[in-house]
């Protein structure tokens, strides 16, 4: 088995304890050296965006609080550092779909601990689907039946990742709810790849809340 990121061979010894637990044995997909380059978020967290914050709600999330009157409860797994930037570049823009497996275990263990009715990956536009060939968010939670409650309209002009902070915050609602879905008292878990300003997730959450969802929380790989 070779590391998906640096292509060096991975030496993996199955821990003895694992042999006695009759679960599936999942070998690591990246080597220790590459793994160490990614940095986990350690507490205390901002309860809203899930990033490190010394005292409660961070300044950015306070702005969301003022704007909407409620905040999203997001969990963010990794820092958006150089290694994560490179990972995202290779996964999304180069289009190496195999890389979806790299963080699969972390995503899985978080999702399994949550209580939700619908697991909703943030959708991509039809054009992205036709050129990239996959939805990067749905790829990250490969193996779960994501509920495709939302559709994304074609973006005019620049994609989200090429915009500045102010431009991002001014992005209009890109999503539409699928017709005839009822979300009465349903709990929603949104999944996205990167939390930057929160604009995308808040757009999605507003739409779902307006359709009657009881609670909307979210999980992002990085932010």
């Amino acid at each position: 088995m070779k590391c998906l990121l640096c292509n060096r061979p991975i030496y993996w010894q199955v821990p003895i304890a694992k042999l006695f637990l009759f679960g599936p044995l999942t070998p690591p997909r990246i080597c220790e050296r590459c793994r160490a380059k990614f940095q986990h978020y350690m507490g205390p967290f901002c309860p809203c965006c899930g990033r490190s914050s010394g005292n409660g709600l961070c300044a950015e999330c306070r702005r969301w609080q003022d704007q909407y009157g409620w905040v999203l409860h997001n969990r963010c797994l990794y820092h958006y550092n150089q290694a994560m930037k490179e990972f995202m570049h290779r996964y999304k823009f180069v289009g190496d779909y195999r890389l979806r497996a790299v963080f699969h275990a972390e995503m899985q263990s978080f999702i399994d601990r949550q209580q939700y009715d619908y697991l909703v990956p943030i959708p991509v536009t039809q054009e992205t689907m036709a050129t990239r060939g996959f939805n990067q968010t749905a790829g990250l939670i490969d193996g779960y039946d994501g509920h495709l409650l939302l559709t994304r309209a074609v973006e005019k002009g620049v994609p989200q990742s090429a915009k500045s902070r102010e431009q991002r915050l001014q992005t209009p609602q890109p999503f539409k709810l699928q017709p005839d879905v009822s979300l009465d008292h349903r709990r929603i878990l949104l999944v996205d790849d990167i939390y930057t300003t929160g604009r995308t997730l808040y757009h999605a959450a507003t739409l779902l809340k307006a359709a009657g969802a009881a609670s909307v929380s979210s999980l992002t790989l990085s932010g």
């Binding site: 289009g95 779909y97 195999r98 060939g133 749905a138």
Partner: peptide, 24 residues
Amino acid sequence: AQAMLPNDQYYCPKCLNLGRVSTL
């Protein structure tokens, strides 16, 4: 299995650095 994309599409992971070759 290695080269799979959703919707029965495939790509080549071997020469990715020169721009992805895919059935798309």
